[in-house]
Design a protein around this nucleic acid. Sequence first.
RNA 1: CGGAGUAUAGCGCAGUUGGUAGCGCGCUUGGUUUGGGACCAAGAGGUCACAGGUUCAAGCCCUGUUACUCCGACCA
Length: 581
Amino acid sequence: MKYSKYFIPTQRNSPQEALLNSHKLMLRAGLIHKVSSGLYGYLPYGLLALRNVEAIIRQQMNKAGAIETIMPLLVPAELLQRSGREKVFKRELFRFLDRNDAGLALSATNEETFTQLIEKQISSYKQLPVNLYQIATKFRDEIRPRYGVMRSKEFIMKDAYSFHVDAESLHETYMAMRQAYINIFTRLGLDFVHVAASSGAMGGQDSEEFIVKSPVGEETLVLCSACSYKANLEKAIQQISPPKATTSSLAKLEKVHTPHQDTISKVAAFLHSHSTRSIKTLVYEYEKTADSNVWLPLILILRGDFKLNETKLEALLASNIRLASPESLEAVFHCPKGYLSPINLEKPPRVIADISLKNLSQACAGANEKDYHFIGVDMQRDIALPLGDLFSFHDISLVQENAACSNCSEKLLQVKGIEVGHIFKLGKKYSRAFQLSVQNQQGKKITPTMGCYGIGVNRSLAAIIESNNDQHGIIFPPQIAPFKTALISIGTQPEILQQSSALYDRLGQENISCLWDDRLESPGVKFKDIDLIGIPLSLIISSRLLATQQCELKIRRTGERLTLPLNNISALLAKLHAMLS
RNA sequence: CGGAGUAUAGCGCAGUUGGUAGCGCGCUUGGUUUGGGACCAAGAGGUCACAGGUUCAAGCCCUGUUACUCCGACCA
């Protein structure tokens, strides 16, 4: 491709709106064009990079036995009603009516469409398992789009859906997809980890996230510094550190006056105690049954130095949760926040205690009276026993900073990352909703079980750029680079153009894609632009080099320059092939 | 949806006490250049986000609206 005939609108200044390096560079190097918040178009150069990412995904998916399809981007509301997800997605879905007032949504994910496909097309176990995928645009009315294409309203996802007669078959495909994902992200050149994750809006059981380590990521990973333990922060577990030793030994509860001490740290300081001997009380509400909109109060207690993990709690209850409204708080307690606890309540609601509180004694807790706290609290005696069936212990806390690994007791590290892939065992949630059934070998009808597997395609591209750049611009790994080489002609003399043209043609014959910078620009402009757009290798032709029948090869990543003879083109081409493979 | 900020040429920005719109880069034309964002000359380009108000006079002051960005909640 001749640069002069191509379209790469580069910019010298970073647009003020971009925060991330990848976002700035994608704009500056002319990969993307912002249409509006969360809406980006791909310009020719960016599209080539995107296509290369897609090709790697496609290759590995096909190799793992998945089969490509294309399904509509519009999803009839009827399908979402059948799965019950019309309500789950709430306002995240872009929805509208067609001319006959039939409800439609723009595809945010496609479980329903694929489940319906199987419902209509498959009736025998002989046709299973099947694993279908597509690479398609997804639409989500994000609460807050940000970071360019990292989180946008419209994005490209590879989504796959597999259908199976039993759990073993699902597991086999799940593991094949897991391996395919490892291959894909390795091939993309990303520094990633895969961790157990919570399944979010998709529903289901096992799931693993693929996360690229990056300080700008929105996900938090918990990794053990010694053993192989790793998990998403939302799912991570830790060894509970013992509470701070105490010398007091009250035999029973005692109410003490604690004027204006309405936070854990104030109370602990006031009582010369410690937050690890405090009981933190939070009041939430949870939905009685999914989407019933009937909310029940719920008291959560944690050790003073722990924080609630809402995701763990939601998974535990299998229900939506929200902070209690002032009215429902009033219905349970008759005192201000800061002095609450589940001790001696008249009509206690359900109480869930974090496992950090197990066996805690000599603790302090609110006395349910303004300016008073209890001391000498014993979890078992004062909370667990009196509450009986209303009470239970569960792990509902976030992993603390510097927490110890539950496997090996070594330090857990928290690392930021970008989620680029997610695989799930969905189970029968959708197949039941769609009353999917196939006949098994005995002629009995059974409900297939499902898996689904997603990759953020353009997010992966952004992650690649985020981790492959320097002060001069993008540094594309060869397998992603829109052009493997650039040919920079310096000078306008006929012999320079002639030599450049000959070399350009040879590269074409060798299938080494090349962007020939034939523009009438000064050398500086060409060097800067080629650096900015990140082409891995540059060949330079100038009168100075031609005088000795040589050209120069420059390596973008290292800045290294090699002078090579032009009279041995096959050696030159062999060298390029070697460096690009 | 809560909180914060921004809005002036394609991009980055300045604009004093309210007095008729500027800079750098980019763009166009002509010429000279060609190893790291060249030089000279001449140009083009603006509803100062939008609406209303105050004023003899508003980019600037006041009110409202919109868009964008950031933080939070949410989320493959």
